[in-house]
Design a protein around this nucleic acid. Structure first.
Length: 269
DNA sequence: ATGGTGGGTACCCCA
């Protein structure tokens, strides 16, 4: 079972990149998308069906946000949840055959000013993370086989950013956000698969700003996209010591790319 | 210290 997650930054504009990714990487059963930036009826359902992803769960909205799960395997019990009291399309969940539940999140970016008193967007991001903790505590029972993926817009560890020192006051790497992400991980007893497979101090990035002359040369990246698994899947990404978690950095170098790259998780099944 | 680019949308929001 191979699952991918990708903040596509407009699925209509980049549907050809999605198809290229699915064919190039191959073997992907489930693709979770964030920032589809379209309404449900504008989602490129036909193109993805033609590519074999005939099972689709979409939570779109006009212009902003929006998440979707497309799959070669049937999806059931589709759920769209509102967090932090805002009815925005930032979460969708579905269950795969065999009972594997997939939660796809797009956490608010949080604006520029890292002060919840003056920046409502940052306050919203912190509230969203608190709500995510409360949800994880109640929704994630110990025996469930659950995967949580998405653009969580937080790079928690020192080596998840190009410069820990220079980003300490930059939204995405502040101590307030990281503390809340750690709480959410603890609340759901999640395993952060990227860091299980690629321990620090190795750098891991999934996002590079558009505002760089040469993203590869400057390499000022951040790990904003995450894959968490529930306790019963703790070792599912490791089989015989071999890692099955991959960051597809090459996609950032494609023509008209998203600023995020896809990551894949292969679960032993 | 600053500003850089790229989406959707409708003359400006957001990342």
């Amino acid at each position: 079972m191979k699952i991918a997650t990708w903040n596509i930054n407009s699925v209509r504009l980049r549907i050809d990149l999605v198809k290229r990714f699915l064919t190039t990487i191959g073997d992907i059963d489930v693709l979770c998308l964030q920032e589809i930036k379209c309404r449900d009826d504008q989602f490129p359902a036909k193109a993805l069906k033609a590519a074999g992803y005939i099972h689709q769960a979409v939570s779109g909205q006009k212009g902003y946000h929006g998440v979707a799960i497309v799959s070669r395997l049937p999806l059931r019990d589709v759920e769209r949840r509102a967090f932090a009291g805002k009815d925005e399309a930032r979460h969708i969940a579905a269950t795969l055959p065999g009972g594997l539940r997939v939660h796809n999140f797009y956490v608010p970016a949080g604006g520029d000013e890292p002060d919840p008193k003056v920046n409502e967007k940052f306050a919203h991001k912190l509230a969203f993370m608190r709500d995510m903790s409360a949800w994880a505590k109640s929704a994630c029972d110990a025996g469930a086989r659950t995967v949580l993926v998405g653009d969580l817009n937080i790079a928690p560890r020192e080596h998840d950013v190009w410069s820990h020192r220079q980003l300490l006051d930059v939204v995405s790497h502040t101590t307030a956000e990281v503390a809340l992400m750690d709480k959410a991980i603890a609340a759901g007893k999640w395993t952060d698969v990227a860091r299980q497979v690629i321990p620090e101090p190795e750098k891991v990035y999934t996002w590079w700003s558009y505002r760089a002359h040469d993203w590869r040369a400057s390499n000022r990246g951040r790990r904003l996209d995450h894959v968490w698994v529930s306790p019963s899947l703790k070792n599912a990404a490791l089989s015989g010591g071999r890692a099955h978690f991959v960051v597809h950095t090459e996609c950032r170098g494609w023509d008209r790319p998203s600023d995020h790259v896809p990551v894949t998780l292969k679960l032993a099944s």
